[in-house]
């Protein structure tokens, strides 16, 4: 593969994704409003009922809003990953996907380009949310906003790869509701986004185990530590491994000889 060709193709895919994002203002607004509702209403309501003892990376008692913010950043990326998946299925139904798939580049590269473009959008959304949270007095150390960037990129890539993988299985747009019920909600609620693991341990033996193995939990922890200028090596390794797994499976899913499309004789 010619590197210059690859760079130009990447530019094309990223530009298209950004233009679509700019044109779909309601997508940006809803991506921002969703976590803000959780922050302004849900977190405010639960502030007094959920007592949080200091656990790393927090060195002292914190407000529930501070705890939930990294989880909501993860939520933005989770929803963005699924939104990318939805747009892949939509593109496939509308036929736009063919433009991408018949271009003279390896499938894996095209998927990675899509993934990078989607991640860029999710990082922009996450920072927009953190800016609003800042004015709401939910603030992390200044340097945390910088150390957060690589964590957001990695988490965004992992959740985007999961979205890509799901899109290779979903034949029709109508089936996407199942993704909400069986992927997004369980991943979100069965994670450390809203409550720490030890809180879950108080009420169940199974749930904390599931939450610990949930890749979304590890992505949230990676974000949480990074926002406070710290590095969580385990969360990073787990997120990286999940990314490798999801992306490999997505590449196989979109491979014309091995993927789901060939098996289904479906349209691409």
């Amino acid at each position: 593969m010619n590197p210059l060709h690859a760079l130009r193709a990447l530019r094309g895919v990223v530009t298209r994704e950004l233009l679509r994002f700019v044109h779909q203002r309601e997508r940006f607004v809803s991506a921002l409003v969703r976590p803000l509702v959780w922050l302004f209403i849900f977190a405010a309501g639960f502030r007094s009922t959920l007592g949080l003892s200091p656990t790393p990376p927090y060195e002292t008692y914190i407000l529930y809003e501070d705890y939930i913010t990294p989880g909501l950043v993860g939520m933005i990326q989770l929803f963005n990953g699924m939104q990318s998946s939805l747009s892949m299925v939509y593109d496939r139904e509308m036929g736009n996907m063919r433009t991408l798939l018949v271009s003279p580049l390896p499938r894996w590269f095209l998927l990675v380009a899509k993934l990078l473009a989607g991640t860029l959008v999710s990082v922009l959304q996450a920072y927009a949310f953190l800016l609003v949270a800042w004015f709401y007095d939910v603030r992390a150390p200044i340097e945390g906003y910088l150390t957060l960037l690589p964590a957001l990129v990695l988490a965004g890539l992992m959740l985007g790869a999961l979205g890509l993988l799901l899109s290779s299985f979903i034949e029709q747009l109508e089936n996407f509701a199942g993704v909400m019920n069986f992927v997004i909600f369980p991943m979100f609620f069965l994670s450390t986004a809203l409550y720490p693991l030890w809180k879950l341990q108080e009420s169940s033996q199974l749930l904390p185990v599931l939450a610990q193995y949930n890749p979304f939990s590890q992505a949230v922890e990676l974000i949480r530590f990074a926002l406070y200028g710290q590095f969580n090596a385990y969360a990073c390794a787990y997120t990286l491994a999940s990314l490798a797994l999801f992306l490999s499976a997505a590449v196989i899913g979109y491979n014309p000889s091995k993927g789901m499309m060939q098996k289904k004789g479906g349209k691409q």
Partner: peptide, 26 residues
């Protein structure tokens, strides 16, 4: 290729659709 079903991005300009294709072809 010209597919039976339109594969243009409806919300992008004509020029932007063509630039996207040009980028994909390097």
């Amino acid at each position: 290729v010209v597919f039976q079903q339109s594969t243009l991005d409806m919300d992008l300009s004509v020029e932007r659709n063509l630039l996207y294709h040009a980028d994909l072809h390097g």
